[in-house]
Design a protein around this nucleic acid. Sequence first.
DNA 1: CGCCTCTTTGACTAGGGTCAAAAGTGGTGG
DNA 2: CCACCACTTTTGACCCTAGTCAAAGAGGCG
Lengths: 249, 249
Amino acid sequence: MIEINAPQLRESHEARMMTFPEQFERFARIHLPANLSDAAILRFQALGRAAAVSREEALALNLHADHLVFVCSGATKLVAHASDRRDQVVGFHFPDELVVVPARAEHSYTLEAVRPSELLVFDYRDFTELARSDPAVLRSLLECARGSLSRSREKSLALGRKTATERLAGFLVAMAVRIGSIRDGTLSIDLPMSRRDIADSLGLTIETVSRQFSVLRELGLLETTGKAGVRIPDLRALEARAGYLTEAA
Amino acid sequence: MIEINAPQLRESHEARMMTFPEQFERFARIHLPANLSDAAILRFQALGRAAAVSREEALALNLHADHLVFVCSGATKLVAHASDRRDQVVGFHFPDELVVVPARAEHSYTLEAVRPSELLVFDYRDFTELARSDPAVLRSLLECARGSLSRSREKSLALGRKTATERLAGFLVAMAVRIGSIRDGTLSIDLPMSRRDIADSLGLTIETVSRQFSVLRELGLLETTGKAGVRIPDLRALEARAGYLTEAA
DNA sequence: CGCCTCTTTGACTAGGGTCAAAAGTGGTGG
DNA sequence: CCACCACTTTTGACCCTAGTCAAAGAGGCG
């Protein structure tokens, strides 16, 4: 273990919790415009609250309101719940990302920690109301929503039309891009989520996910170390298994 | 046929094409703030172009740019294309709705007409650039994106975790809400899309969709008239078959 | 009215789910 | 430092839902 690109994902004993102002400062640096007045920043700060969520715990939220959550540290999943406790992970989130958690409708949504996480929570209505006349903040929210929409559409394609192997290959490619790092000269991922989380994200069972890991391993497309470690010797080769469109005009 | 709530979906011989200014005026009324100056409106108008697309035809777009498309009349589908010409419909759109069509990435997207449609096309970059300092326009775009994201997440849940029957039931409930009307005292839908479109939207085959129509018909949850007509005597009963979360605290 | 397409139904297959058990992981305490 | 233990992951055997292939039946436009 020479270097870790995403140290904020690690659970470590010495990980000091951030104070609320530190968390907010981090959020503001990324998602609020740089030239915002101190007074305006304080108004946004007044809307937020910090929440620490431990592994597999759901963030407590008012079910009847939309929320905006900023991930300071850790890793989270947004889970949609249908009848018969069938769950679908509709997205994973990593530090510095912003998530919109919808209110309960035909289905309910919970934001759950995949690793112990520090979160900053806003009421969506309050936040957009305060931002209603601030184009820079609105643009930031719009970009966030567009990114989520794009990932969600890719997921629809995977869930609707791809085989189990393609889904796992695509998932690992996406994770490599988002939280991968180079170790010993090889692209590596330290997966923060369990096989169950992956299964619930890909619309499969844990057994099928496990079998597909074996398939990709036997194809020489990846090596696994322990439960979480994945090494990808050839990202292009893995992409080719993901059912992506072949390069054409 | 006593009344039709969504006459704009009908293909009719006498349907006169709208002129570009008429189309734009309709778009502006819905998606631009009422108090926008004439000069500003003209700047937006200068960015748009009208396009008429016939049934099953794809809107011609620059593949390497995002687009914003307003549906004036007809009905469209946004289709994601994976390898081996497997297609996934990621959304349907009806008059007065706004769609974001993403540029080609790992997969490509096309916007195709399900009925002959009149569309208003904008380059997404140009549009947001012009709107960059207009909070009202940005809020409108944000609302549009949030609605699409919400529908897309519901679709992920359906594709990942629901049975064929639940998917069709949920689809018909959603269509009833979006384009249904009351005829002879019964909730009715005149489906603008083919069985293939429905299958591509639900991640099924046309045969399975057809079989599920038969299942719901035999359960007394719907009646079909011709290829497109669906009557829903009891919406609540159909919802109960859609795998929605049962009403709880 | 007739033809062509779309939809429905039927028979069979296969990919992934289910149930069960073995193997591996990693944390804890002796 | 290692052995134990609870839990997660992997593997195996079998099953079921939806896919595939094929053919019959309806619709609707000319």
